[in-house]
Amino acid sequence: MNLTLRVWRQKGPQDKGGFVDYPAKDVSPDSSFLEMLDRVNEELESRGEEPIAFDHDCREGICGMCSMMINGYPHGLEKGTTACQLHMRHFSDGQTITIEPWRVKPFPIVRDLITDRTAFDRIIQAGGYVSVNTGSAPEANMIPISKEIADAAFDVAACIGCGACAASCPNGSAMLFVSAKVTHLNGLPQGEPELLERTRRMVEQMDAEGFGNCSNHRECEVACPKEIQMRNISKMNRDFIRSSVLSRVFGTNGKS
């Protein structure tokens, strides 16, 4: 099939950027969306033009690197699918496809479709872990965990950190991402000792990065390629309230 791509091109963070149209010719319906972009890029390169820059690595929907708005939706419209897993058979001949980067303030555009998502790393650094040094772990089966709790932890731990939640949210909120990690760890006995401090610090870091608030638009849940659910946000909010009350009474344990 033949398509027209309307692609956001921007040389760097300071550049104004704008849309440029490219034809995508003889696209095989069996190729993936990124393979379709590869073809267009190879054509540009053979003419000595700079290809469209986009992030990708695993191309299996698990690394979270690919990130683009396809016709206005993060990773496109297919449910539970990353851009790299989207196949061209979901598009029709003659269609125009608009491709843009994530538009979220804390994710500045680096070039074309590539943004800087290190804000997510900094949120994890603010407590998204269990403090256990190598070698100090007890025998694994000393911590029995019911299958339900373990399965629930897995469901949220499946987050790939792509940022689609924030990109889909009219407020640019990262609550789905943050709550996924918070509920994964807070829900397990291993994560319980640091529950309050973890929640408070991660939420504070999220705010400091400039992510917006959650006002229940529910776009994030629809956009999430791993189908992580919004009820995690309310769980996190409960822990956060407990944490802020307690820290007001007892102080913040030396860490800010």
């Binding site: 772990a137 694994a140 911590i143 965990i145 373990a150 731990a157």
Partner: peptide, 22 residues
């Protein structure tokens, strides 16, 4: 054997049986 201990302590959600063991 130490690897599994370490990962479980970090909160890695390995599959478990109904009795709660790995």
């Amino acid at each position: 054997v130490n690897i599994i201990d370490q990962c479980v302590a970090q909160g890695v959600p390995f599959a478990r049986d109904y009795g709660g063991l790995l």
